[in-house]
Design a binder for these strands. Structure first.
Length: 503
RNA sequence: GCUCCCAUCGUCUAGCGGUCAGGACGGGACCCUUUCAAGGUCCAGACAGGGGUUCGACUCCCCUUGGGAGCACCA
């Protein structure tokens, strides 16, 4: 901790920022990282973080999405001050429940001639695009229905399906500002008359977000930079409606390791999948925040520290590549930082579902607590836990095949190995007290008696007792496993080796 | 095709006209060590290219190149 804290929000007005996902699936890292930053900005400035569901596309709606979106935020520890589930002073927070607001805005736009009814059919529009492509002209609505006199349009509207389009000025330029990129200027001639109200009377994103962000008094519109190209449209809408424009903050996207779009293969898993994969919320939160944004040389930062120090204007502009290995490393850091009691609770929950069914439930908590310190600094994700320590719960483990033992120093020396293990078993029976310290002491002196290197003997013991070549610290493990079981396993191993050596 | 955005080690980044271009992940070496980790020390590794501006450019401007996004009755 450098002590060189940020401004702590002093001097910054409380911001109202929103996370506005559409319920079309589970949020992925790129998407949720925007939420992390928005949340941080809200907390940093002492403002509000709002969740709004953008479900204006009835066709794409996916059942259960909202729950999973909220669940993802919750898991990450992003709490919201207003939202679909808890309401708030600017509700409702679901766009499909705000239709009258959009219709009212459309009426105003129609009245001011900033919008008009369009009766073009899908076929006509397709044909138009076809023509544009053939003539190598940029695609876009050419304004055919703009020429229809309002009275005629009103009349036809009574019986004909239609949409409402925004009438973009033919000339001039629209100047927008992005907090991170500054001035962004676009020729109006490159903008077409976009749809603001669909024929099903639902608004498009363009209209809905403008109406809602104004109504909800959003100060900062934070979203992915795929929205930059349509920002001028939004500015035009804000202006036409007489609304003050919010501060736009377009954040760059997250790229896949090889470059290109992030896909399932590359870690674009949903947030909830990270939980399943054994990642800690704080680690993912920290990591997400740090990719695409930085604070000096700091990397591992607590939630509070991040809130204190986060400055939204310092978000990086270049698209970042998702570095799965760094996430995993960071997760390891967080696991090591976690108090043992907490960690053992997490581990217990894992074991509860991952241990073989024949292990009695609930899983022995005292045992988990004893084992946790042994593996805390050896794991990077909770998913590694079970395979590492399941032997503590297996009352019977078949001795590994003799080849496991007879390597390196013990190659072709089955009978030596067998007798060494027998000596170890005998010593194990006698050690008092049966604790790691005395155990190690005894085994080391046994090494001298046997004239073998400690590592060589310990490997034999390790394989016999834990069933594997890699394990948590040997003597601590033996202490936990217990004298009886250790001796049994040692003798079993010894016997199996003796069998091999016998002619 | 048109419009827009971006550009420092392999990756995430610090830098905000004068630095030996710093840190982290990953990689390598060594130390520690009962395995595996963790920890410690050290090493390799970057300003995409070309023009300007300036006494002086990683830093400011332009072009090129490269990457990305958008051009729907999807968001």
């Amino acid at each position: 901790m450098t002590g060189s804290a940020g401004t702590g929000g002093a001097g910054e007005r409380p911001a109202r920022v929103r996370y506005a996902p559409s319920p079309t699936g589970d949020p992925h890292v790129g998407n949720i990282r925007t939420a992390v930053w928005a949340w941080l900005h809200a907390r940093h400035t002492g403002g509000q973080f709002i969740v709004r569901i953008e479900d204006t596309d009835q066709a794409r709606k996916i059942e259960g999405s909202v729950e999973r979106i909220l669940g993802s935020l919750e898991w990450l520890g992003l709490d919201w001050d207003e939202g679909p589930d808890i309401g708030g002073p600017f509700g409702p927070y679901v766009q499909s429940e705000r239709l009258p607001l959009y219709h009212e805005a459309v009426e105003r736009l129609l009245a001011s001639r900033d919008a008009y009814r369009c009766f073009c059919t899908a076929e006509e529009l397709d044909a138009m695009r076809e023509r544009q492509r053939a003539e190598k002209r940029p695609p876009g609505y050419e304004g055919k229905c703009r020429a229809i006199p309002p009275t005629e349009a009103e009349e036809r509207a009574k019986s004909e399906p239609h949409v409402i389009r925004f009438a973009v000025p033919d000339e001039g330029t629209t100047v927008c500002h992005d907090l991170l990129r500054g001035r962004i200027e676009v020729e109006n001639s490159t903008l077409d008359d976009f749809v603001i109200l669909k024929s099903d009377r639902y608004p498009t994103y363009h209209l809905a977000h403008v109406v809602d962000d104004h109504a909800m008094e959003i100060t900062h519109v934070t979203r992915g930079d795929e929205w930059i190209p349509s920002m001028p449209r939004h500015c035009l809408l804000f202006d036409a409606l007489g609304y003050e424009r919010p501060i736009f903050v377009h954040t760059s996207i997250i790229l896949a390791p090889g470059g290109g779009k992030l896909s399932k293969r590359h870690g674009a898993k949903s947030m909830l999948e990270y939980a399943e994969d054994g990642y800690l919320p704080d680690a993912v939160f920290n990591f997400l925040c740090i990719t695409g944004w930085g604070y000096g040389d700091e990397t591992v930062m607590s939630r509070q520290q991040l809130i204190d120090v986060f400055e939204i204007e310092n978000i990086g502009l270049n698209p970042a590549t998702f570095d799965m290995e760094k996430l995993t490393w960071m997760n390891g850091v967080y696991i090591r930082q976690t108090p043992v009691e907490e960690l053992s609770e997490m581990i217990a929950r894992r074991l509860e579902v991952e241990l073989p069914p024949d292990v009695p439930r609930p899983v022995d908590r005292a045992l988990v607590e004893a084992v946790t310190p042994l593996i805390q600094e050896r794991i990077q994700t909770l998913a590694e836990v079970t395979p590492l320590i399941d032997f503590f719960w297996q009352s019977e483990i078949a001795p590994p095949p003799p080849e496991e033992f007879l390597q390196k120093r013990w190659k072709d020396r089955a009978s030596d190995a067998a007798s060494a293990l027998e000596r170890v078993a005998a010593a194990t029976e006698e050690v008092e007290p049966f604790e790691a310290g005395p155990l190690e002491e005894r085994m080391r002196s046994l090494c001298e008696e046997l004239e073998v290197k400690a590592g060589d003997l310990f490997t034999l013991i390790r394989i016999a007792v834990t069933g594997r070549r890699v394990s948590p610290p040997l003597f601590e493990s033996m202490e936990i496993v217990g004298r009886g079981v250790c001796v049994d396993r040692l003798r079993a191993a010894s016997a199996s080796l003796a069998a091999v050596s016998a002619p």
